[in-house]
Amino acid sequence: MTEITEGARLRFRKKLIDRAIDLLLMVFSVLMVLPLILLVSNAFKSPQEMLAWPPTIIPHAPTLANFKAVFGETPLLRWIGNSLLFSGLSTVCIVATSAFAGYVLGKFRFRTMNIFFALFLATAVVPFEVYMIPLYFQAQALGILNSVWGLLLGYLVMSFGIFLIRQNVIHAIPDELLEAARIDGAGELWIFWRIVLPLLRGALGALGVLAFFQAWTSFAWPMIVTTTREHYTIEVGLALFQTGFTVDLGRLSAASAAVLIPSITLFVLLRRNFVQGVATTGLKE
């Protein structure tokens, strides 16, 4: 009898602790996204309401005036378009180069390949900021400053992408499968196209999402490569826009919200891909 009540008491205690943890996590989670929520909500406020305390989450008198002003004054859509084009092209390049290199490095055990792998590995830790100045002069020599090609130059390959695909090739594609295809007389390119790529679909998807967000949020490189207003990416455009209008928070918020809303939506939709990508590239063995 006493044992049962003891058990019930313990279970109740555990439940209580779990609820407390839930509450704590809930508060913390809301605090984490609160700055972004307030930013989006500010975008719809009149200057008077923005000063109100406590800040309102849902504006009393929502207005689109800030958006109208921002879209009228700045080539915001153009900047978003530039960013989309740049990020899309970068994604294609990174996925393609990583797929080929990752497959070869994972399945073809020749000594030359080991040397190449060591080369990729050794330079993976070098941050982009270290070599972007010489890269800038390469873009200049090619005459592709202030263009999407110049932006792309810095984001054609991704070391972690190669490692991610290689890791997946090793774990997900059995040698026997490839050998069987070879015995049946399949060519190497056919094997890559028809057997390897379909098996890598998940990993390539994760890498694609990762690559897209990497280019979309890049800052230092677009900052030095683009110098004319119509070639800015959205990040550079916004950053320079805010130095001009330090006071007009409404317009700044509207411009920021116009960027944040689509990218957060995209992220929530692609969350699984993204998390898988970060988790596996993060934990290389």
């Binding site: 989670s29 700055p35 972004l36 930013l39 500010n42 959205i234 990040e235 918020s253 960027v259």
Partner: peptide
């Protein structure tokens, strides 16, 4: 918790600037 890591840097910084 993960959203701040993925959103574009500049708009997020703008929120904090305010």
């Amino acid at each position: 918790v993960f959203i701040p890591y993925v959103v574009s840097l500049v708009p997020a910084a703008m929120a904090w600037k305010w």
